[in-house]
Design a protein around this nucleic acid. Structure first.
Lengths: 175, 175
DNA sequence: CTATGTGATGTCAGTAACTGACATAGAGCA
DNA sequence: TGCTCTATGTCAGTTACTGACATCACATAG
């Protein structure tokens, strides 16, 4: 993060990252499968927590309410992380390669959430659609949360965005 | 596509692709920004057609109906392309790098659709959510269409999937 | 018909991400 | 003390990708 902030992602070589960490380039690649991955280390833990909150949702909850519970968990995980999230996102937004990596992490998250729904007995394609919709809500909400003008909490924005999605798909939007 | 089918994507070097096309490696990179892009050339045209169908939708249509019109256009574009789509997808599914590229193309598509909705006067975040939901429906429907066991048309599957999404977000799904 | 400019292609050298093979060091343990 | 196992270092190699410059075909002005 330091080096990326100083020189930008492309201008920073893996050799420099390794040197700053007191390691060899070869050792870097033993810890991270590639240069981009260094920014996405925590994503598997994140995914696991959301899957758990799906598993823990009340037995009678509908798929969309179950997804809402997972999104609520996601919102809580970013409390007090706004500054860090903004710095990180600024780097990602500046490089298409990093955006691609972010998107595949989110796609993998959607697949995990769908699987967690299926384990609750939700059928396909409902499970997959609910999961994809949930991730779409998260993406939109996260972007709104990151915006410099925003002061609301991620949790609140997620709730609002989910309600907006419901209104949109119900055909309740003007124009 | 020939070379990727024979040897796989990673095992095929750009020099080989260029040679097969009767060109130099350097010339390849003047036509395609990178090796992966060779599989995603048509995506800007695709995106343009969907944006046009959003612009052409009836003035009073709701955002979700407008997106439905765009998805209908998308469905028509793949008539008689099932075999080609399956071969191409097999290659993509085998390589994470290619999946990343596919995802960023779809994200770019979602951004374009959202912009087309905004030009019709749809506000944010409704425009973005409707667009993201539309792309999610397309993803799920496309996967179902590609499945070997499937015989239905992409257009029909898209319609079904959109209806499923509406049911899911309305909370009308069991369990 | 010649000259000149323009766009596509070729040639070449260089950088940096990533990989495989092998060597070494240190921690724990018999 | 010696053995094993894991993390790390070293080194050589491949390949994607880029910048600089040369060349060639073709069109068009003069």
């Amino acid at each position: 993060m330091e080096l990326f902030g100083e020189r930008g992602f492309e201008q920073t070589t893996v050799a420099e990252i390794a040197a700053r960490a007191g390691l060899t380039e070869r050792t870097f690649f033993r810890h991270y499968s590639d240069k981009r991955e260094v920014l996405f280390g925590g994503s598997s833990g994140f995914s696991g927590l959301l899957m758990q909150s799906i598993a823990d949702a009340p037995a009678g909850a509908t798929p969309i309410d179950t997804i809402a519970a997972a999104l609520a968990t996601a919102g809580e995980l970013f409390v007090d992380r706004l500054d860090h999230a903004r710095r990180r996102q600024r780097i990602i937004d500046a490089h298409a390669d990093l955006q691609e990596r972010e998107l595949i992490k989110l796609a993998s998250l959607a697949a995990s959430l769908a699987e967690a729904l299926r384990q609750r007995g939700v059928g396909d394609p409902a499970a997959r659609l609910a999961a994809e919709a949930g991730v779409a809500v998260f993406k939109v909400a996260f972007d709104r949360w990151i915006e410099l003008s925003n002061t609301a909490s991620l949790s609140d924005i997620i709730r609002e965005s989910l309600d907006e999605l419901k209104a949109v798909t119900a055909g309740n939007e003007r124009r």
